[in-house]
Structures are given as structure tokens and as C-alpha cells.
Design a protein around this nucleic acid. Sequence first.
DNA 1: GCGCATTTTAAACATGCGTTTTAATTTAAA
DNA 2: TTTAAATTAAAACGCATGTTTAAAATGCGC
Lengths: 210, 210
Amino acid sequence: MAKRVSTKDKILNAAEALFAEHGFEQTSLRQITADAEVNLASVNYHFGSKKALIQAVMARYLEVLMPALDRELIQLAEQPQVTTRAVFDCFRAPLNELRQVRKHGPTIFLSLLGYAYADIQGHLRRYTMDHFGDVMQRLLATLHLANPQLSPVDMFWRLHFVLGATVFAQVSGPALREIAAADFGEAIAADQVIDRLIPFLAGGVDAPTE
Amino acid sequence: MAKRVSTKDKILNAAEALFAEHGFEQTSLRQITADAEVNLASVNYHFGSKKALIQAVMARYLEVLMPALDRELIQLAEQPQVTTRAVFDCFRAPLNELRQVRKHGPTIFLSLLGYAYADIQGHLRRYTMDHFGDVMQRLLATLHLANPQLSPVDMFWRLHFVLGATVFAQVSGPALREIAAADFGEAIAADQVIDRLIPFLAGGVDAPTE
DNA sequence: GCGCATTTTAAACATGCGTTTTAATTTAAA
DNA sequence: TTTAAATTAAAACGCATGTTTAAAATGCGC
């Protein structure tokens, strides 16, 4: 009983794999449709344009991640003490839930996130704000609970440094893990990079200002 | 006495400005040669290929930054106490020296660095290691002085998180500063982002491991 | 000022891209 | 089974890219 996969899903699956590896702009519809074993024109038929396809790929993950993250943040806010580290740990379970979407969902999603910010500046930011603005608001509020000494503008910048480190670690992840394995004989799984990352991020956010 | 600028330099100047703003892949030779007011074919004549032009643009900055950074690191190593923060502060003067190359050299260079890592993975890394491997070695050694508790592999990852945050902050810099100005009415200059960044980076590197 | 090497120019080349068109095919309801 | 809608397929379109070619212009030592 081989299960029938729709053309639309074949495209989504092939596209996200190529996007995660090479970025959006550098992945052509011809590569995608060849990998998906569908006709070139079917992307425009089912999604309308390449841009809409990119959005559909991202939405599939965001719709799982964002509600899960929201639940974690609400739960955390009930605690008497909130630390920066605890806020970042809120991402662990939601990221893991992305495995429901795809086996290597967490890694794929973070790579996509990286390219989304690098390639189409503002485009994804607007989408995220429109659909999940309340979650982002809660994230900011919770981080402020943990760091009342940071002004909103300080927090704004530090959060983007956090995003940068995260995104870079994932986009360059395959290459970096290869180098690390060669130089230190120590191979770590893609999903474990996040374990190294979180303490770093918390330390950065908690750092005293200038 | 208008000073005569060679075609080669006109190309380099126009190219780096466009590269810094839009990235390498997304900047065409036609845009570059139009801005530089030179013929399209002159890029291939003087540099051989677009790839070689990219390398020439980066080299112009690296050849100023790296020796200056090396001097700072050597000087720092003579101090009795070395902190992570002090290591990162070593970048301030060398980055400022890039103004000799161009007025907004520091910002341009960091943007270029960002795109270099995002666009042509490994390509720039190899060039840097071939030409300035000794400086990178010294940087690692100095950071180890400041953080003897971190294993080499820990340091490897944290340094790349640092690179990611830096690069992202610069590449997304214009957009982020715009948003910050709109949301907080607080406009900060491009060169001041580094002042916000350094405490964050030092805090991240100094953070306790998992 | 001649003659050769260097540089600039305009044009074309080959390739790849996202998209559109038109016809063939499959699907599913009547 | 018939028929209309949805989907797939092949081909072409229009455009942009990096590169190459071959002629024209320029610079410069003699």
C-alpha cells in the first residue's frame, strides 16, 4: 500500500530540502521540479509563483512552531522566577515538535529561517508579524521579565544578535560540523548544535551593557 | 586637479558598495560597470572573472585588517590578565583603520564578510586561512588565555556563534536600524552597532557551558 | 610621429531563470 | 457513459546573467 503523495506535497518536500541546503534565491524551480519528479509548470499552477511557494514552505513550519512556543511562554510566565536561560529553553520542545512535519524538521526550519532573513529582507518579518505578532509580543514581554534592567531598545538589538548567531549556526551548520569533525575528531549531530548555542545566547543577553 | 582614477579602481569601488548593500550573487556585473561608468567587458579584462573580482574586493580590506589585528593581539598577550572582553576590543582599532580604505570601511567590510560566508561557503574561509592563518591561530590562542575552561571544540563553536551574530547584525543592519528608529525613535549610527555587539559577544563566550 | 602593446568598446554568445501558453490527459460528478 | 472541470505536460517566451570575440581607440617608448 504505497501511499499516494499529491503533486503539491511533492513540490513542498523537494523545495524545502533544496531551500534548506542552498537558500531560496539559489534554488531554481527546475531543480525543485526535477527532484520532486513533477512538471516544471506545476509550481506556478499550484502555488502561483516562486515567492508564494517559499511562503508556503515557511508557513508549514511556523504554524506548528508558533502555537507550541506560545504555550511554553504562557506556562513559564506563571513561574515565580524567570531567567533568560529559561526563556530560551522554551524553544526546545517546540523545535522538537517540528519533527512531526519532517524528520529533520528543527534543522530544516532554522536553515530556512536563516535564508529567509538573508534573502528576502522584511518579507518574512512582515508575514511573521501579521500571523504571529502576539507570540512575538509575549516573547519580548517574557524576556523583559527575566531582564528588567535592559531597555526595550537594548533588548531589540540583543534579540537580533541572538537571531543572527542562531541563523548563522544553522546555515553554516553542515560546513561547520564537517570542519569540527576534521579538526577535533568530534562529530556532533545537527540537532545538538542548539545545545551548545543556548548557553551562549543566554550569556549574551544577560551580559551587562556597555 | 581632479585625480585620475584607474578603471580597475573604479570597478573595485563600485563593486564593493553594491556588494555590501545587496550581496555578491545578487549584484550583476552590469550594475557594477554602470555605476563605475566603465565598459562591461572591462571586469573580465582586468580581473578575469566575477569570482576573482569578489576576491579582490575582500583582499583590499583583509590586507589592512589582519596585520592590524595581529599587532593588537600580540600587545594584549603581554598583559598579565586577559579577558574575553579585551580580546574583542582588539577589533575596534583595526576595524577603524579600514576607514583608510574607504570612509565607511568598517561597515562595508563587515557586510562583505557576512555575504562572503552566506554566499560562497568555504571559498573565503580557505582564502583567509591561506593568507592569514597565523592571525587566526593567535586569535584562538588569546581567547584560550581568557577562557582556559573552554575546550578547543567549545571555543570553535562559540567563535562561530560570535561570527554569526556579528555578520547578521551588519548584513541586516540597515533594515534593523530603520526598524529601531521607527519603533523606538532612536536612530543609532551603523558604526555604533559594534558598541552594542561587543558586550553581548563577550557575555556569550564567557557563559558557563551546559 | 611611428609602431606596437595596452586598453576600451560594442556586439554577440551561450545559458539559465520564472512564467505563460496551449494542448493533452486524468479525475470525478451527473 | 458522458461531460465538464481539474490537473499534467511540452514548448516557447522574454529577460537577465557571466563571458567571449573582434574591432576600435588609446597610450607610450623609440
